[in-house]
C-alpha cells in the first residue's frame, strides 16, 4: 500500500526522529511511504483557540495536500483527531465538507493503522525495557484507541509493559492551554508524572508526541530518569 505520512508541524521541527521511525516501521512492513512536502500544520492550535476562521484555510490546505492519497497516517492521536473528527465540523456547510469527510475516512493514527487496517501486531521490534503507556486523550476519547498501542507493545520482544494508576488522566498538555494556564497544566502533569514514576518504568511511551513534550519536559525539569519515547520509536527499535 502507498502510505502518505502526515507529520505534525512540531514533530517536523522538534522531534523529527518520530517521523523517521514511523516511516521506517511502515517501510519495513513492505509499504511504500511518501511524504508530501507541501504539508505544514493541520490548524489545530487555531481551532482550539476558537479561531475557526484561521483554522479553516489551514484545513482546506490539508485537504489539497492529501488529495488522492490512499491512506494518510500520522504518528499523533491529537493531529489525526483534528483531521478525522474536527475537519468535518469545521468545514460543515462549506463546499469542502464532503472532501473533509472523505479525508477523515482515509486518515489513521499510526498504531490504529497498524492494528486495525493492516492487521499487524508484531512488527518485529525488540526493546528489552520496562515501559508504561500513556494514553493521549485525543487517541483515547476522540479516536477510541486503547488496546491498539498496547497490543503492539506487548508484541515487542523483551519489552515489559506496566500499567499506570492514572492511565486515563490527562497529562495537562492541551495545546496552548499548557502555556495559557501553566499553573493548572503543571498541576496536572505532576499528578500524571507522579503516577508514571511509581510504575518504576524506564520509559513512558505514547502515541502522542505532544503529550510526550509535556511529560518529558516535566520529567526532565524534575531531574527524573524516566524518558519519553514515541511508540513509533519503540517499534523501530531492534536492539
Amino acid at each position: 500500500m502507498r502510505i502518505s505520512l502526515f507529520v505534525p508541524c512540531f514533530v517536523d521541527q522538534l522531534t523529527p526522529r518520530v517521523g523517521v521511525a514511523a516511516a521506517e516501521v511502515l517501510t519495513r512492513l513492505g509499504h511504500e511511504v511518501e511524504f508530501r512536502e507541501a504539508q505544514t500544520c493541520c490548524g489545530q492550535p487555531s481551532f482550539n483557540s476558537g479561531q475557526w476562521d484561521v483554522a479553516r484555510p489551514a484545513a482546506v490546505r490539508a485537504l489539497e495536500v492529501f488529495r488522492g492519497a490512499e491512506a494518510v497516517v500520522g504518528p499523533s492521536g491529537s493531529c489525526v483527531a483534528m483531521m478525522r473528527v474536527f475537519y468535518p465540523q469545521l468545514l460543515e456547510g462549506t463546499p469542502h465538507e464532503a472532501e473533509a469527510r472523505d479525508l477523515a475516512s482515509r486518515t489513521f493514527e499510526f498504531s490504529e493503522f497498524l492494528v486495525r487496517r493492516l492487521g499487524v501486531e508484531d512488527v518485529g521490534a525488540r526493546f528489552a525495557k520496562k515501559v508504561t503507556y500513556h494514553d493521549g486523550c485525543h487517541a483515547l476519547r476522540e479516536l477510541r484507541l486503547k488496546e491498539e498501542p498496547r497490543r503492539l507493545l506487548r508484541a515487542v520482544k523483551g519489552l515489559e509493559l506496566v500499567e499506570t494508576e492514572e492511565a486515563e488522566s490527562c497529562c495537562g498538555f492541551g495545546g496552548l492551554f499548557s502555556a495559557k494556564f501553566p499553573m493548572i497544566s503543571t498541576a496536572m502533569v505532576q499528578v500524571k508524572g507522579g503516577a508514571l514514576l511509581r510504575t518504576g518504568a524506564d520509559y513512558v511511551v505514547s502515541s502522542d508526541p505532544s503529550c510526550l513534550l509535556q511529560i518529558g519536559g516535566w520529567l526532565s525539569r524534575e531531574g527524573k530518569p524516566v524518558l519519553p519515547l514515541h511508540i513509533a520509536e519503540v517499534l523501530a527499535r531492534r536492539d
Partner: peptide, 22 residues
Amino acid sequence: TRDLPEAPAVSFRDQWKKGAGR
C-alpha cells in the same frame, strides 16, 4: 516548570529529502 527538548539540527522534511526513513 517544564523543559523543552534541544532543537534538532535537521527537521524531518530535510532528513526526508536525504532519504531518511526508507
